[in-house]
Amino acid sequence: MPFDATLSTEGQVATITLTGELDAAAAPAFRARIEEAAGASPERLVLMAERLSYMSSAGLRSLVFAKQKMGQAVDIYIVAAQDPVIETIRLTGFDHSVIMQEAYVG
């Protein structure tokens, strides 16, 4: 399934909804949404990942990019991720740096 990332911003919360497969070819589209979100100086970045069916390390690098663009104080939430995506995040220790939730609790 082709990758898609859509951004919505409400107050201090930027939400990006991810769909499809996030590989290195798709990562620039994700990073473009992150940059767009950073423009609103949010305090929190929420990634809705329920329909994200695949994520390579290019996706993980995009999370680092988000911290760089938005500042280290911004909390990154990953919500409703599928099991294999969760496994990749845990295996690489990124679960220590993001907040994983089954459903978004602000």
Binding site: L60, R61, V64, Q72, S97
Partner: peptide, 21 residues
């Protein structure tokens, strides 16, 4: 191999993750 995987996003080098996976 990548450096300490328990380190925070901000403080660790990002290289090597792909080969690790």
């Amino acid at each position: 191999p990548p450096s300490d995987l328990s380190e925070s996003l901000e403080s660790r080098p990002i290289g090597g993750l792909g080969v690790f996976l």
